[in-house]
Amino acid sequence: MTEQSRLADRESVIQVKKMNKWYGDFHVLTDIDLDVKQGERIVICGPSGSGKSTLIRCLNRLEEHQEGDITVNGIELGDNVKNIEVIRKDVCMVFQHFNLFPHLTVLDNLTLAPMFVLKQPKREAEATAMKFLERVKIAEQANKFPGQLSGGQQQRVAIARSLCMNPKVMLFDEPTSALDPEMIKEVLDVMIELAEEGMTMLCVTHEMGFAKQVADRVIFMDAGQIVEENEPHEFFNNPQNDRTKLFLSQILGH
């Protein structure tokens, strides 16, 4: 496939080997192997409780894994706090509930981390922030507070906030699930644009249209395991595993 060849000679950004995670006795992730190439767009889907959010949350250490190795940009992700800090600069997360800082203006939400983590001067951070706010088509809201924006606008601000950190990888944790239907498109449009510009993305979502349009690979998870992965055309038209077939019939059936 052309998609595969596009990525064939790229370097891996994230490598996950035999990763296991438990919540107490509950085995939430089992033997996860995952290799993410530079510029690759991956959509992760699966029934709720299948561990897909937990998987991407492990990739920037919002959750700890207990067994196996996660390597980001060649840096081992473990208990070492310095490593975690370095990796978090490169791997940003967009959350289901946006998690903007409600006490700061939109602009301050965007400039805070660049100023304190990347030590950018205020003026430079603000210029970058305005550039990305324009890109997500929301520059006129820069001086408002998050509480004054709609859900779709807030999520676009959250995406811009991540972009300001100039990340190598962006993780999306169900970015449209908390939105009213009429606002989903404006967020997906921004994500599609990002994908087309070559951003490395891992996206947990139920938006199968988005998966078909931009994904290089679709991963199906169930019960803490990667059950099936394939490029989107094959994945949707010719699923191999019974659980995948059942899941697809449920979400595409109506």
């Binding site: 920037n60 600069k89 791997v91 997360m93 959350f95 903007l100 800082f101 981390a113």
Partner: peptide, 13 residues
């Protein structure tokens, strides 16, 4: 919790 996570994922110490 989301506020802590957002701050963490932006790399704030």
């Amino acid at each position: 919790k989301g506020q802590y996570e957002a701050a963490d994922s932006l790399g704030l110490n």
